[in-house]
Design a binder for these strands. Structure first.
Lengths: 336, 336
DNA sequence: AGAATCATGTGGAACGTTCCAACAGGTTGT
DNA sequence: ACAACCTGTTGGAACGTTCCACATGATTCT
């Protein structure tokens, strides 16, 4: 159970601890004989360098902490892949912790990361107040992902939600729709911009009069509830734009239950392109986000700061793309 | 950027570093005046204890490392929740890393955890050879989750896959089925036991002659391929038991494509109870695993060893439960 | 030949904590 | 009145590395 230390290796190899250290880190700078002796001794003892001691003396851990607001969100899992992929070649490891969709637990996770002295922090879909995150950013580089901010202390990388919404409306209008309802998710992360993109694009097509908003949220049940409200209103649209894929799923359920067909009677679009949107029986038209690119970009923002190449905040925005599947088609009574 | 140390706090509070340390860890053991002075000074300086230095001197990190073989697998996300939940009250933090479904990268993730001197390791759905994991277990407590082993060096917590398969067959037979095909996933983790449970239960009902196996795997496409093979065989069963939910999904797609109705013409069951199995248009009957319990049990196994309460290996098996949804019903032509 | 350079190796300080033996001063017990 | 025992506090050692200034001996330069 007791791990061998560098001193044990040094003794067995008959050299000083400094040479062992050097032999492990920069093998070229020691003689062949010494290098061999050290490597053999290390192997025989099962020596594994103690990263804790190293971090202490170097005052850096070569670890980037990643706080996932929700481990279950497949979107973040993809982003985390991109993070790992970009971090490894730069000599950083990614360490993950979940915030469990609770600002308190998220705060605790950050606190742990700070105490462990990670070199940088990437926060995926944080639920915390920006002001609190800015405080954290005073002691290390922090990048916010999937949430917009104009903060002067924080970097961020996000997707242009307005552009995504615009692409969805464009798609629906091209199919011949004009009665397009948007279920909006209030002030939740990304929701206001999706809504703004919807309204702006409707106006661009001179469909000001057709703009119609129903309050919902980012959950399946929220989408179902909003959809039922629409169905009961008596005034049926020909297309519904849900704020994300989960909400779209709930809306789909409600439309199915009402005996209407998708897209025959009503087209439906979501947002996020979750894996489930591509399932055979779902086939949801939605907006796809370049997930691994987002991760890569976030790492880049952190390492830039760590290397001292930049001190002022940068906010990177990438463009999403339309993914057309089977929940959209021409409106009823339109052959186009 | 430079973090204050315990010495800075001591100086500002006018006490020794030892007292600061004590005041932060065991406030009851210092006088009111000192405690207040220390706390105020720490607050003013924004002092945050350095867990790296603490780990070094204490030779323990109070961290349990969790290696997820796949971050995208929602099953592991649930288990991780259970782990966090059980670890926190015991004073441990969980730190996650992904193995990205690649034994090499998994090995690297373990190596990082070991160098960081985590106190224990929980491996979710590992892809590595047991022998290699046993080597790791020589230096800290390791618990394997979601994979069976009889290792003398390792603890494990798993689900009784045979019992799960048995429950599915029981359910189908009770509905009146006898022509039940099992798509099996070869020697993949858990697959042999599911298959054994199927065969055993069929025999229990004297359905030896109806036992029919088709080779597939744990993926959607594997399930679709196997199902097409069944459909093309000409000899249609009344129920299909897929090796997991993903494979069931592929089978569902194939059955849909063949114009057959589920469960009218054919019943279908999966295994795992992924969130997607509960989606409105899917409604898959499947086997649910007590995920957070699994996580809790894994933590328990680790802390038991850390507290020195146990040195011999333990293998915990928990029972799964049947989740009935809408893909199962009586066989065609049977009113029961 | 002596100086300068190079390759190789060394020992001690430092990183920021916790732990421990020890101490001062007060209280209690006999 | 003195030992025994608290309470609150302290300074130094230790944890396992890396870093740095320096030492040694060989080689090259002038």
């Amino acid at each position: 159970m007791k791990q061998p230390t560098i001193l044990d290796v040094a003794e067995r190899a008959g050299v000083s601890k400094s040479l062992v250290s050097l032999a492990m880190r920069e093998p070229d700078r020691v003689s062949d004989a010494s290098r061999r002796a050290v490597l053999v001794a290390a192997e025989e003892l099962g020596y594994r360098p103690n990263a804790v001691a190293r971090s202490l003396v170097q005052r850096r851990s070569n670890v980037i902490g990643v706080i996932l607001s929700d481990l279950h969100n497949p979107f973040f899992a993809d982003v985390a892949d991109g993070i790992e992929e970009a971090a490894a070649p730069q000599g950083y490891r990614a360490l993950l912790s979940s915030g469990y969709l609770d600002p308190k637990r998220e705060q605790a996770a950050i606190e742990m990361m700070l105490e462990m002295r990670v070199d940088g922090l990437i926060m995926l879909g944080s639920m915390m107040q920006i002001a609190k995150i800015e405080k954290v950013a005073a002691s290390l580089p922090v990048t916010l992902l999937g949430r917009h901010t104009r903060s002067k202390a924080l970097d961020s990388v996000g997707v242009d939600d307005s552009a995504g919404a615009q692409k969805l409306v464009d798609h629906l209008v091209e199919l011949g729709h004009s009665k397009i309802v948007h279920i909006h998710a209030g002030s939740a992360a990304g929701a206001p911009r999706r809504r703004a993109g919807y309204e702006k694009t409707m106006r661009r097509y001179n469909l000001d009069a057709d703009i119609r908003l129903v309050k919902g949220d980012f959950t399946e049940s929220g989408g179902a509830k909003a959809m039922n409200e629409i169905l009961e209103s008596g005034d049926l649209p020909t297309a519904v734009f849900a704020p994300n894929d989960f909400a779209a799923l709930g809306a789909m359920e409600a439309i199915d239950a009402a005996g209407l067909s998708i897209p025959g009677d009503m087209s439906l679009v979501g947002y996020d392109n979750l894996a489930l949107a591509g399932l055979p029986r779902i086939g949801l038209t939605t907006i796809g986000q370049p997930r691994t690119d987002l991760g890569r970009e976030a790492v880049h923002l952190v390492t830039e700061r760590l290397d001292g190449d930049r001190v002022s905040a940068r906010h990177v925005v990438v463009s999403p793309s339309l993914v057309t599947r089977s929940t959209t088609g021409p409106p009823p009574g339109n052959s186009k």
